[in-house]
Each structure stands twice: as C-alpha cells, then as structure tokens.
Amino acid sequence: MGIPASMRLRKPREFLEVRSLGHRIHCGPFIFQCHVGACTVAPRFGIIASRRVGNAVKRNYGKRIFRELFRQHADELPLGSEVVVVLRNHFDRYSFDNLEARLLRACRTIRQKQATE
C-alpha cells in the first residue's frame, strides 16, 4: 500500500526546512523532528538513513518500519505537520513495539507543544 506522494517529503529543501525550523526530540534509536505549519493539510513524512546506520539492507529495513509506523499513526499528529525521522545505527536493537511507543510519545509531545503555542 505505502504512503501516498502527497504525504511524503521529497525535496531536499523540504527536509532542510523541517530540520531548521522544527522541534527536535531525541528518542534513543531515532531523532524525531517536526515542524507544524499554518496549513491544514495531512501530515507529511520523510526519513533519513545515512550510511552510518549500516548497509543497504539495514537502512531499507529501518525505512520500511518507520513508514509503516507513520502510516498507522499519522492521525496522532496535528494537521499541517511535517515530520523527519533520522535513524541511528542502533535502531534494530529495539522491538517494533518499543519503536512504536517512542514514536507515539514524540507525537504526543508535539501535539502538546502545538496546543500551548
């Protein structure tokens, strides 16, 4: 199934904007960065897995996991949010449930920050 193109960050400029303007939350096996814009479109998602993470098999595995997590929990994010997840090389030591819990905790934190602003 996958994530539709309208819900993905695709251009380097979009990634840079989120990384420079957004809130950064260190979640252990990944870094969650989110910028909430004024528009009311569905949340958008991008993932960064550099070669430091591991070989191509490990990087693609991590990207598949986080795409699926985003697909399942995109409704936890405020409308107009853009999310970048930066994988760290030890993400594969954590179970899927643990990664899911960490991502949901980060989503709740962003939602709380959005409500106070």
Rank of each mutant, 00 (worst) to 15 (best):
A42N: 12
K58R: 15
L77C: 02
I3R: 00
A74G: 11
R10W: 03
E117C: 13
V18W: 06
V41Q: 11
A42Q: 11
E100Q: 13
T116R: 14
L104E: 08
M7T: 09
S20G: 11
I3Q: 00
I47W: 06
F91H: 05
E117D: 12
F70G: 06
L77Y: 01
R13T: 14
L21K: 12
V57P: 07
H73I: 03
A115R: 06
P78H: 09
F15S: 03
Q33A: 10
M1A: 13
V84E: 01
F70C: 05
R8F: 13
S50T: 09
R93A: 09
K11I: 03
A49S: 15
H73M: 09
I3H: 02
I110L: 06
I65F: 00
C27W: 08
V83W: 01
F96D: 06
N89L: 13
V84H: 02
F91S: 04
R102M: 13
L77T: 01
S81H: 02
M1N: 07
A106V: 06
V85I: 12
R88K: 14
L103K: 00
P29R: 10
E76P: 09
Q112F: 10
C107W: 00
P43I: 05
P78M: 08
R108V: 02
C34L: 15
C34W: 08
L69I: 05
S50Q: 14
K113E: 02
F30M: 15
A56K: 10
P78Y: 11
I110C: 01
L9H: 04
N60E: 12
V57E: 03
E17W: 12
R10P: 03
R19D: 02
A106Q: 03
E100I: 03
S95I: 07
A42E: 03
R108K: 10
F15D: 02
G22Y: 04
Q33V: 15
D75S: 14
R10C: 06
G80E: 03
L87D: 00
I3N: 00
F96Q: 11
N55C: 09
I47K: 01
G54I: 12
S6H: 11
R67A: 04
R10D: 03
I47N: 04
D92Q: 05
N89W: 11
R44N: 05
M7L: 11
R10E: 08
R88F: 02
R108H: 13
L69R: 00
Y61S: 15
I25H: 14
D92I: 05
R105S: 15
F30Q: 07
S6E: 10
D75P: 07
F32K: 00
F15T: 00
N89F: 06
G22R: 14
R59E: 00
G37I: 04
E82Q: 07
Q112D: 13
E17K: 10
A38Y: 10
F91V: 12
D97N: 07
R93L: 04
G80H: 01
